[in-house]
């Protein structure tokens, strides 16, 4: 449909307006990170000020940022890798060798995501304690893998389902064994889907706060626990909290920005093919 100039401008205005509205809290936080504490709580709010880096200096002085950052990378990356290693064969089996109960298994897996996590906190905590997993990176990797596995399997299942059955049948006639079909056809054909599944799992694990705060104290604490440590005992210091938050979300925002093309392509894979 051809749009007139007026319509184009109106669309752009509405689009930008909505985007700004949604991004406002993040933008406000980014601004606050560069204010002094008094500027940060000033009312009416201040939009123009001389930016300062003193909050960042304070944050770095008080906490070992690289330690948290490294934990986040290891835990998010490790759990994603593990979830893919388990999820790929599971989704493959469900997509290409389904049984009568496959649909039920999928629904059951997704249903585990509907339960409030706090409901299983006590048993998980006790198990982690017995297994010596409290405050370990491997413990969090394990927890995040379990947390993301349903979504990972679902997404991979969907991507595998989109591969035309005839292609695999043609390969069968060409003499490809299941393992060869997997490596030579399925993997390259669903690479965008697998990549976006991995990206989503990284983002979900990076942003996870509940389990990291409850299952780690110092050694394994990722960035979400680092932010939390800025919000409590001495009352609220908006500027410092904002600086810490910006440091925590910065890497994943940059990561998401760089991979957004891949993410969107993967998430709309079947629909626009």
């Amino acid at each position: 449909m051809e749009q007139s100039t007026g319509q184009k401008i109106a669309t752009a205005l509405v689009g930008w307006g909505l985007s700004l509205l949604m991004a406002f809290p993040i933008l406000w936080m980014a601004l606050a990170a560069f204010k002094t504490e008094s500027q940060a709580i000033a009312s009416p709010p201040i939009f123009f000020f001389a930016p300062t880096l003193e909050n960042f200096a304070a944050v770095f002085e008080r906490a070992n940022y690289p330690h948290f950052f490294l934990n986040s990378v290891v835990v998010a990356g490790g759990s994603t890798l593990l979830a893919l290693i388990i999820g790929l064969p599971a989704a493959y089996a469900m997509a290409f060798y389904p049984t009568k109960r496959t649909k039920d298994v999928l629904v059951w897996m997704l249903s585990t995501k509907m339960m409030p996590a706090v409901g299983v906190l006590v048993p998980i905590y006790l198990m982690f304690r017995s297994a010596g997993l409290i405050d370990t990176r491997s413990g969090l990797v394990f927890m995040y893998t379990l947390m993301n596995l349903p979504i990972v399997v679902w997404m991979l299942f969907t991507f595998f389902k989109d591969v035309p059955k005839e292609i695999l049948e043609a390969a069968l006639l060409d003499g490809a064994r299941p393992v060869q079909q997997f490596w030579m056809l399925l993997l390259p054909l669903t690479a965008p889907g697998i990549a976006s599944t991995g990206l989503l799992a990284v983002i979900l694990a990076w942003n996870e706060a509940f389990w990291s705060i409850n299952l780690s104290t110092s050694n394994a604490t990722p960035l979400t626990a680092f932010i939390a440590s800025f919000s409590s005992p001495e009352g609220l210091f908006w500027a410092k909290l904002s600086a810490a938050s910006l440091l925590a979300i910065g890497p994943i925002l940059a990561f998401g920005w760089m991979t957004q093309k891949q993410l969107v392509r993967g998430l709309t894979f079947g629909a626009v093919k």
């Binding site: 005839e166 292609i167 049948e169 060409d174």
Partner: peptide
């Protein structure tokens, strides 16, 4: 693959990520 047959499918079922030459030589490669 051991029956010695080749099949042409209604949807062609070509391997989308391979060139024409690779599509045609896939069975021989395997």
């Amino acid at each position: 693959d051991e029956r010695g047959l080749a099949m042409v499918f209604q949807s062609y079922a070509l391997y989308p990520h391979m060139t024409v030459a690779d599509n045609m030589s896939f069975a021989l490669r395997l």
